[in-house]
Computed example of a mutant assay.
Amino acid sequence: MTVEPVRQVVAPRGVLILVALAAGFVVAFGIRLASGIVGPLFLALVLTIAAFPVRNALVRRGVPPWLGTVAVILAIYLGTVALAVLVVVSGAELAGLLPQYADDLRSLVAGLTDWLAARGVQPPRPRRSSRPSTWDGSRASSRPCWRTSCRS
């Protein structure tokens, strides 16, 4: 009885690349569908990794492990609240500073518009409706006009 050697079947490189791209697409699509779960999960993971050394340091100093875990949870909550307060305060300061930069922004937009106009780019003009208005100022017209040829 002779044993025949097993032949390995290797797929062509193009097929492997195509399968890898399809797998990447499926993974990306799955992450997109589960983004409501994946985002908070990664945030919790990052916060836990960042705060976990506090627990280890407390346990080495003789604090019970449960109290170290509570300290980590409190540290995460305090950090999150502090970050939220900083975002709110920064937003309020930005809202207070924006009026000071309104003139600069207007001149920047005017300069950009002039630069584009010098190169032949014109801003879009508002379209005029070919359909007459069905609003007479005080009430809606009783007969709406859906065709462009109808005039009242």
Results as ranks from 00 to 15, higher is better:
Met1Lys: 02
Met1Ser: 15
Met1Ala: 13
Glu4Lys: 12
Val6Cys: 11
Val9Thr: 06
Ala11Met: 04
Leu16His: 04
Val19Gly: 04
Ala20His: 02
Leu21Lys: 01
Ala22Thr: 06
Ala23Gly: 14
Gly24Asn: 06
Gly24Met: 10
Phe25Met: 05
Val26Ser: 03
Val26Ala: 13
Val27Phe: 06
Val27Glu: 02
Val27Asn: 05
Ala28Ile: 03
Gly30Trp: 03
Ile31Asp: 01
Ile31Gly: 03
Ile31Phe: 06
Gly36Glu: 04
Ile37Tyr: 13
Ile37Glu: 12
Val38Arg: 06
Val38Met: 10
Pro40Glu: 12
Leu41Tyr: 14
Leu41Asp: 11
Leu45Glu: 09
Thr48Tyr: 08
Ala50Leu: 00
Ala51Trp: 02
Pro53Ser: 09
Pro53Gly: 02
Val54Phe: 02
Val54Tyr: 04
Val54Asp: 04
Arg55Asp: 01
Arg55Asn: 01
Asn56Tyr: 08
Asn56Leu: 05
Leu58Arg: 00
Leu58Ala: 08
Arg60Ala: 01
Arg60Ser: 13
Arg61Gly: 04
Gly62Tyr: 05
Val63Lys: 02
Val63Gly: 03
Pro64Gly: 13
Pro64Val: 14
Gly68Asn: 03
Thr69Trp: 01
Val70Arg: 00
Val70Trp: 02
Val70Tyr: 00
Val72Thr: 04
Leu74Trp: 04
Leu74Val: 07
Leu74Thr: 09
Ile76Leu: 07
Tyr77Pro: 00
Tyr77Lys: 08
Tyr77His: 13
Leu78Ala: 13
Leu78Trp: 09
Gly79Glu: 05
Gly79His: 08
Thr80Lys: 05
Thr80Val: 12
Thr80Tyr: 08
Thr80Leu: 09
Val81Cys: 03
Ala82Cys: 02
Leu83Ala: 07
Leu83Asn: 06
Val89Ile: 10
Ser90Phe: 11
Ser90Trp: 05
Gly91Arg: 11
Gly91Gln: 10
Ala92Trp: 10
Ala92Cys: 10
Leu94Tyr: 09
Ala95Pro: 01
Gly96Ile: 02
Leu97Cys: 13
Leu97Arg: 14
Leu97Gly: 14
Pro99Met: 07
Tyr101Gly: 11
Tyr101Phe: 15
Ala102Ile: 10
Ala102Gly: 08
Asp103Pro: 03
Asp104Val: 15
Leu105Asp: 11
Val109Thr: 02
Val109Trp: 01
Ala110Cys: 01
Gly111Asn: 10
Leu112Gly: 11
Thr113Asp: 15
Trp115Pro: 04
Leu116Asn: 08
Leu116Glu: 12
Ala118Cys: 00
Ala118Leu: 03
Arg119Lys: 02
Gly120Pro: 04
Gly120Phe: 06
Val121Gly: 03
Val121Glu: 01
Gln122Cys: 00
Gln122Trp: 01
Pro123Thr: 07
Pro123Arg: 04
Arg125Lys: 13
Arg125Ala: 12
Pro126Asn: 15
Arg127Leu: 15
Arg128Gly: 12
Ser129Thr: 08
Ser129Ile: 12
Ser129Val: 10
Ser130Ala: 14
Arg131Gln: 10
Ser133Thr: 15
Ser133His: 08
Thr134Lys: 11
Thr134Trp: 14
Trp135Gln: 05
Asp136Lys: 04
Ser138Leu: 15
Arg139Ala: 14
Arg139Lys: 11
Arg139Gly: 08
Ala140Ile: 07
Ala140Phe: 14
Pro144Met: 13
Trp146Phe: 07
Arg147Asn: 13
Arg147Gly: 14
Thr148Cys: 08
Thr148Ala: 10
Thr148Leu: 09
Cys150Ala: 05
Arg151Ala: 15
Arg151Val: 14
Ser152Gln: 10
Ser152Tyr: 09
